[in-house]
């Protein structure tokens, strides 16, 4: 089994405060991983440590590469479009992505836009919250990489859009690529997860197959996750 990600003894502090401590995390190719944890637990920080936009102690290797510039080329990260002004048209954002990322597949992007009903002639300022998330997903999935990081793709959007986004993940994730999806409520993505990673107490608290939770404890992913926060799983 080959690994797409190997994090070894990674620690990260911000303003002398420990955000993550001694993180060891190995992810296999071809999996969908739910990255779960409370707001402020360090999910986004973990993703930024993987891409290299945050620098901590320890080593991070993506597809065997530890050099940040190389790592970035293996990763498609759902960025929030903050770098673009509100008057930017979607077409211009797309042109930018095509210029910057050699692995951006315009044909695939068009398919995603059709499926997610995205009108690319609109300006960023005229997009609803849900539409903006769909655009981010389409841009992220249109790249052909080994590792996809989706940072809270479902926050604040309606259930129809959520379902569409979930379907597009199943449809378009390349078979050998791994995808990490962070979220703090899990019920809707639970059926598509291979594994769950729970961030708690400044580290990786649990990393296990999703079906093993159901099999061993007879509880759902959400109930299991909540029980960890309330203090301990009830074993039969």
């Amino acid at each position: 089994m080959t690994n797409v990600l190997a994090m070894n003894q990674v620690s990260y502090k911000r303003n002398l405060k420990t955000i993550l401590h001694d993180v060891d995390l190995t992810l296999e190719t071809g999996k969908i991983i739910g990255l779960l944890g409370e707001n402020g637990a360090g999910k986004t920080t973990l993703m930024r440590l993987i891409t290299g936009s945050a620098k901590g102690k320890g080593t991070v290797a993506v597809s065997g590469d530890t050099v940040v510039a190389n790592r970035k080329s293996h990763i498609s990260f759902s960025e929030q479009l903050h770098g673009f002004s509100n008057s930017t048209k979607l077409d211009e954002v797309i042109a930018f992505y095509q210029r910057v990322y050699v692995d951006f597949d315009p044909k695939q992007f068009t398919e995603l836009c059709t499926f997610l009903q995205i009108d690319t002639s609109l300006k960023l300022s005229s997009l609803s919250k849900g539409m903006k998330e769909k655009v981010i997903i389409a841009l992220t999935l249109a790249r052909r990489t080994n590792l996809y990081l989706l940072d809270e793709p479902f926050s604040g959007i309606d259930s129809m859009s959520r379902k569409k986004i979930i379907s597009s993940i199943i449809k378009w994730k390349p078979e050998n690529a791994t995808m990490v999806i962070s979220d703090h409520y899990v019920s809707e993505i639970a059926p598509i997860l291979d594994e769950i990673v729970i961030v708690k107490d400044q580290t990786i608290y649990t990393h296990r197959p999703a079906d093993s939770v159901r099999e061993e404890f007879g509880v759902g992913i959400e109930a299991y996750y909540e029980s960890l926060y309330k203090g301990g799983v009830q074993h039969d």
Binding site: G30, I166, I192
Partner: peptide, 14 residues
């Protein structure tokens, strides 16, 4: 397999 996954809204590996 992928079509089944899409139809059932589950993971291809599952």
């Amino acid at each position: 397999v992928r079509q089944l996954a899409v139809d059932l809204t589950v993971n291809v590996n599952t």
